[in-house]
Write a protein that binds this DNA or RNA. Structure first.
Length: 414
RNA sequence: GUGGGCGUAGCUCAGCUGGUAGAGCUCCUGGUUGUGGUCCAGGCGGUCGUGGGUUCGAGUCCCAUCGCUCACCCCA
C-alpha cells in the first residue's frame, strides 16, 4: 500500500479544525499589532538558503531537499521562512515602504531529518518578521506577541530563554576565545565535547558530563563580551520585557542554528515536548538583507512550530460544527425535491446536508442524529408536503415546501 | 547515519507453553408494510507489515527486510 512519505502526515478533518484555531489566534494577535500576512513559494533558488541561512549550518549541509528544475537551475524546498521573506522584501522594493515592514506567515517547510516526536520532514510554522527597524522595542514587541500567541493557545511554555549574540565580529572573537579556553582544559572535558571544539564550541555549555560542567562554570560568557552598543540594546529589550511582566532566563548557551542572527535571540521551550523542547524562537538578523545584496537593513523575527504547539496546547477545543438541516428522503423519487430543498437552505445561510448514501429512513434519522442535525426534513410523503422534525424535542410537523426554511430560520420550537 | 520499542479488521486491542484468527468501537441492515438517541440480532471488514526458514502444521519460534515510533545529532 502506498503510504505518505516518511516524516509527512495527512491533516485529517479533526486535526484541521485544531489547526484552524491556531491560525485564527495568530491572525488575531499579529494583525492587532499591524503585522500583515505574506506567503512565499514553497520552492526557492538554492542559493537563497546557501547564502541566507549559511553554508556551515546543518540545514544547508544535510537537510535540504534540492533538485534541478530541468533547466540547470538548482531549486530547494524551503527549509525555513526568514530568508524567503527577506527575498520578497527586496524583490518587491519594500524598503521604500514605511519601515519597519511587519509580516507574518503560516506555511509548510521541509527538512530531510530523521522524524520523531514534534519533528517532521514537512512541517508547519507560524512566523513573524519586522524588517527595517533597529529599535529594541521591535525585539521586545515580537517576543511579547509570541508569548501572547502561546498563552492564548494554552501552550505551556515553561521557559523563555533569552540572550544576545552581539555582532558577528564579537561572536567570532568570542568563539575563538572560547575555543582557546576549551583547548586549555581539553583533558578535563568529555570526549563528545572535545570532538566538537572546532565545530560547535558553544555546545560545551550544555554537556551533561560532571567534569565538563565544572570547567564550564569558569568559561568566558558571550554576554560579558558584548560591545557597549549591543549591551545597551539588550538592556533595553530586557527592560521592556520586565515592564511587560514577561519572565525569562538569561541563557549564555542559547545557540540558534542559523548563521544570520545578531544581537537578540530567544526561544520558548516546553518540557512536555521530549527531546524537541523548542516550541518557537527567533531573534534579530541585522546582516541578512545585506547578505542577499540588499541595503543594510536591521530586522527581527521568530517562528513557532505548529505541530509542537498542538502537542502542548490546552485551550484548543474547536467549536463543534453546526448542522442546521438534514434532508431525508421518504421515497427515492423525492430525490429532486430534496436536492432543491437543500440548495435553498444553503442559499438562506443554513448548513444543510442531503442523504447521499441510499440509507433506509431509519438509517437516515440515525445518521442525522450522529452528525448533530438540529432539524430533519423528510421529503417524499406522497402528498407533496414535508415533515420537519426537531431532533432535540422530537416534535414533528407537516409543512408546505416553502414553509420549511422559514420555520428553521425562526430557529425555535416548531 | 546509529541504538531501543513496536507492527493482528477503518480505530483500540486480545490471541497462554506452535494446531490454519477474535472482542469492543465505527459503519450498514433488521427488530410494525416510513422516523434518531438506549437495547437486541445479523452483516460488511484481516494474504496476522513483507520475504525466507524450522515444523506434519506458525499470528505464535528463527533470520532478513520494510514501515512506524522514541532517543542520539540538530532543530520548529
Amino acid at each position: 500500500m502506498i503510504q505518505a512519505p516518511r516524516g509527512t502526515f495527512d491533516i485529517l478533518p479533526e486535526s484541521a479544525a485544531r489547526r484552524k484555531v491556531v491560525e485564527e489566534q495568530a491572525e488575531k494577535i499579529l494583525s492587532a499589532a499591524g503585522y500583515r500576512r505574506i506567503e512565499t513559494p514553497a520552492i526557492e533558488a538554492t542559493e537563497l538558503f546557501a547564502r541566507g541561512v549559511g553554508e556551515g549550518t546543518d540545514i544547508v549541509r544535510k537537510e535540504m531537499y534540492t533538485f534541478d528544475d530541468g533547466g540547470g537551475r538548482s531549486l530547494t524546498l524551503r527549509p525555513e521562512g526568514t530568508a524567503p521573506v527577506c527575498r520578497a522584501y527586496l524583490e518587491h522594493g519594500m524598503h521604500k515602504l514605511a519601515q519597519p515592514v511587519k509580516l507574518w506567515y503560516l506555511s509548510t517547510f521541509f527538512r530531510s531529518e530523521a522524524p520523531q516526536r514534534g519533528r517532521y520532514r514537512q512541517f508547519w510554522q507560524v512566523g513573524a518578521e519586522a524588517i527595517g527597524s533597529p529599535a529594541p522595542e521591535t525585539d521586545a514587541e515580537l517576543i511579547v506577541l509570541l508569548a501572547e500567541l502561546l498563552d492564548g493557545l494554552g501552550v505551556r511554555h515553561d521557559r523563555l530563554r533569552l540572550a544576545s549574540l552581539g555582532t558577528p565580529a564579537t561572536r567570532a572573537e568570542y568563539r575563538e576565545e572560547l575555543r582557546r579556553f576549551l583547548r586549555a582544559h581539553e583533558d578535563e572535558l568529555a570526549e563528545e565535547v572535545r570532538n566538537r571544539i572546532d565545530l560547535n564550541p558553544l555546545r560545551a555549555f550544555d554537556a551533561d558530563d560532571r567534569r565538563t560542567r565544572a570547567v564550564m562554570r569558569d568559561a568566558p560568557k558571550l554576554l560579558d563580551r558584548l560591545d557597549p552598543a549591543d549591551a545597551e540594546h539588550f538592556a533595553q529589550v530586557r527592560a521592556l520585557l520586565d515592564d511587560a511582566g514577561i519572565s525569562y532566563e538569561l541563557d549564555p548557551t542559547l545557540v540558534r542554528g542559523l548563521d544570520y542572527y545578531t544581537r537578540t535571540v530567544f526561544e520558548f521551550t516546553s518540557d512536555e515536548l521530549g527531546a524537541q523542547s523548542g516550541v518557537g524562537g527567533g531573534g534579530r538578523y541585522d546582516g541578512l538583507i545585506e547578505l542577499l545584496d540588499g541595503p543594510a537593513t536591521p530586522a527581527v523575527g521568530w517562528a513557532a512550530g505548529v505541530e509542537r504547539m498542538l502537542l502542548v496546547a490546552r485551550d484548543l477545543a474547536p467549536r463543534a460544527e453546526l448542522v442546521d438541516l438534514f434532508v431525508a428522503l421518504g421515497q427515492r423519487e423525492a430525490t429532486r425535491a430534496g436536492f432543491e430543498l437543500a440548495r435553498e437552505a444553503r442559499r438562506a445561510g443554513l448548513q444543510a446536508q442531503l442523504e447521499l448514501a441510499g440509507r433506509s429512513l431509519k438509517g437516515q434519522l440515525k445518521h442525522a442524529d450522529r452528525i448533530g442535525a438540529r432539524f430533519v426534513a423528510i421529503v417524499g410523503n406522497g402528498n407533496g408536503r414535508v415533515s420537519l422534525k426537531d431532533m432535540e424535542s422530537g416534535e414533528q410537523r407537516e409543512l408546505g415546501p416553502s414553509d420549511v426554511i422559514p420555520a428553521i430560520l425562526r430557529g425555535g420550537r416548531l
